[in-house]
Design a protein around this nucleic acid. Structure first.
Lengths: 139, 139
DNA sequence: CTTGACCCTGTAGTCGGCTACAGGGTGTAG
DNA sequence: CTACACCCTGTAGCCGACTACAGGGTCAAG
């Protein structure tokens, strides 16, 4: 080992800030394959693996799942891949996030309406929040 | 069975729109205990269980977890419970939702910036989205 | 009296993204 | 030569909220 041009899994883990188990997990998920193996079976990574892991980390921060990131990485690997596909994936993700924001905003609005009507003291018997949850009327 | 005042688990499932397995799951999670059992061990529910399940469904729609709903139900059960606690739980949930909305809004803004800069056609070699994910610069 | 719908318990699987072993083999410093 | 850190595979656990059996017992209709 330690042959200059390759990294062991432990070194790559330290270089990327991830755990060894996580790197092996990414390999199982098809996100990061080692460049090769030593005679004794140790994984060998090229220094570029650090970039690939940074790609994964950033894409995760943008809300992409590992499956989506796998597709993005595949597109990034071939220089003549379809940039339109990348944009399409990105816009699907934007739409997905917008849906989630709308759902959360609706929840928040309902909760705020309930919280406003609640005095915040006294017995639960007259609590409008619990009344609303338990009530007969549809909602 | 079928004694007018009680419901079997299957009847309660149909009355509430939930599955039988879900009701047994709620029981394990401490959200819904049957009023009793028949001699042969069948669960017997009172008609009020339908209201309780509606409470659970609505609380879920507002973003509460089953653990939180268990606490809300416990507060609703004793008429002299602390309404302030109910309001506090509600406001924690509002804050939690606000955090999630902010996180999603940040993701969305980043994705939109990237999507704008992307022509949406041509090879991935000049795709600003992939460049941004792979690049050296922090982000 | 049989059929079929219902009920019981207990366990295991699903999703996503890890994380933690157990039980081995390997590589290197002192 | 012996520690000790590192590596390997394979499996199992975690979170939350279900969902799906397997392998039984029960109940009502015909």
């Amino acid at each position: 080992m330690h042959e200059g041009q390759t990294l062991s899994i432990g070194r790559l883990a330290r270089a990327s800030g991830l755990g060894v188990e996580t790197l092996r997990y990414y390999e199982r998920r098809g996100l990061l394959a080692p460049a090769g193996r030593t005679a004794s079976g140790y994984r060998q990574y090229r220094p570029e693996a650090v970039r690939r892991l940074r790609f994964i980390r950033r894409a995760q921060a943008l809300g992409f799942s590992l499956d989506e990131i796998r597709e993005l990485l595949a597109l990034a690997e071939v220089p003549d891949g379809d940039a339109g596909r990348v944009k399409a994936i990105t816009q699907e993700k934007i739409a997905d996030i917008e849906r989630r924001i709308r759902d959360l905003a609706r929840m928040k609005a309902s909760l705020e309406t309930l919280a406003e009507r609640c005095p915040g003291h006294g017995p639960t018997a007259q609590c409008p929040i619990l009344d609303a949850l338990a009530g007969e009327d549809d909602a």
